[in-house]
Amino acid sequence: MTGAAASARGATIPAMTTPGWYPNPDGSNSRRYWDGQQWGQVDAPPPPPAKRKMPIWQKAAIGVVGAFVALAGCGAVFGDSEKEEVAAEGAATPTSTTRPVAATTPVAAPAAPASAAPTSAVPARPPVDYTSDPRCQPGEPRYDAMIGSGLLDGSLTLANTQMIIDDGVVFYGASTVRPDGKFENRSDVWVIDTIPYSSTGGARKTTSWSKASDRLRIFPDDERIQAVDNCVANLTRN
């Protein structure tokens, strides 16, 4: 733009030579560029107002105030809720002016006496038959001496002697007694055929005579041995 054109629009030349945007010399709310000698032809809108930065302390104060406001709001909400709950509970709880009636304890009827359980009688044990075999007869001293000569313990003696003679063979039973009068064996049996032979277990342990089962083939379960053994045992029960 020339100086004449500027004058025609009523513009004035600024008193500065530094190029830049300046308020429009025509007085409008715009800006015009000054190149250091003359005005330009294009107007520019006015610059936006500069934003003022908020100080940090002011931001912190606003945050603290906001926090207090939020807490106050929460307290108001919860306080109202608690008041509503209390009011609801009070409304739901009925009040009664009726005087309570004392509870009566029922009296239990006397129990019927327990009937005694029936007791079954224990059957009596049948009497034990201690009857001795009629074939048994008292022993003789000569047989006592014969068997006693084979006793391993010389302090033992024979007592309660009983014998059964069958077909020339003597089945001889006796108790072996210690010096204090107590039994070493209540009843033992020997078989005499010329010489004695031990038959029962006690006879084999207390005398040195050979086993009758080996020499004579007469075993401890022979009924004659069982019979004379029972005769001796019956004498010890008297």
Rank of each mutant, 00 (worst) to 15 (best):
residue 88 A to Q: 09
residue 190 W to R: 05
residue 66 G to L: 14
residue 56 I to R: 13
residue 6 A to S: 12
residue 22 Y to H: 03
residue 230 N to M: 14
residue 198 S to P: 01
residue 158 L to V: 03
residue 131 T to S: 13
residue 99 R to Y: 10
residue 203 A to K: 03
residue 100 P to K: 00
residue 185 N to S: 07
residue 110 P to D: 05
residue 154 G to W: 03
residue 138 P to A: 11
residue 232 V to H: 06
residue 181 G to M: 05
residue 6 A to T: 01
residue 58 Q to L: 12
residue 77 V to A: 11
residue 67 A to N: 06
residue 171 F to R: 08
residue 146 M to P: 00
residue 107 V to W: 03
residue 206 T to Q: 11
residue 54 M to R: 13
residue 35 D to R: 00
residue 234 N to E: 09
residue 137 Q to I: 15
residue 71 L to F: 13
residue 219 F to G: 10
residue 111 A to E: 13
residue 146 M to L: 15
residue 1 M to S: 09
residue 27 G to Y: 05
residue 115 S to M: 13
residue 219 F to P: 02
residue 206 T to M: 11
residue 87 A to C: 07
residue 98 T to V: 15
residue 130 Y to Q: 09
residue 11 A to P: 08
residue 186 R to G: 00
residue 57 W to H: 14
residue 160 N to E: 04
residue 127 P to E: 14
residue 105 T to G: 11
residue 109 A to G: 10
residue 43 D to G: 13
residue 62 I to C: 06
residue 11 A to E: 08
residue 124 A to F: 03
residue 78 F to G: 10
residue 226 Q to G: 14
residue 80 D to H: 15
residue 100 P to Q: 01
residue 10 G to D: 02
residue 173 G to C: 07
residue 95 T to A: 13
residue 118 P to Q: 09
residue 186 R to A: 10
residue 154 G to R: 15
residue 185 N to Q: 06
residue 211 K to Q: 14
residue 4 A to I: 05
residue 165 I to F: 10
residue 91 A to F: 11
residue 2 T to D: 08
residue 79 G to S: 01
residue 233 A to R: 15
residue 140 E to A: 13
residue 117 A to Y: 08
residue 173 G to L: 06
residue 174 A to S: 03
residue 170 V to H: 11
residue 124 A to H: 04
residue 131 T to G: 10
residue 1 M to T: 06
residue 63 G to M: 13
residue 103 A to E: 12
residue 81 S to G: 12
residue 193 D to G: 05
residue 198 S to F: 02
residue 26 D to K: 02
residue 172 Y to P: 00
residue 119 T to G: 14
residue 134 P to M: 04
residue 222 D to Y: 06
residue 222 D to S: 04
residue 7 S to F: 04
residue 2 T to G: 07
residue 181 G to L: 07
residue 67 A to I: 14
residue 17 T to H: 11
residue 234 N to R: 05
residue 38 Q to R: 11
residue 233 A to H: 02
residue 86 V to C: 06
residue 89 E to I: 14
residue 48 P to R: 04
residue 7 S to P: 00
residue 36 G to Y: 05
residue 125 R to A: 10
residue 201 G to R: 12
residue 96 S to E: 07
residue 148 G to C: 10
residue 74 C to G: 12
residue 48 P to N: 10
residue 55 P to Y: 06
residue 172 Y to L: 07
residue 229 D to A: 10
residue 202 G to E: 09
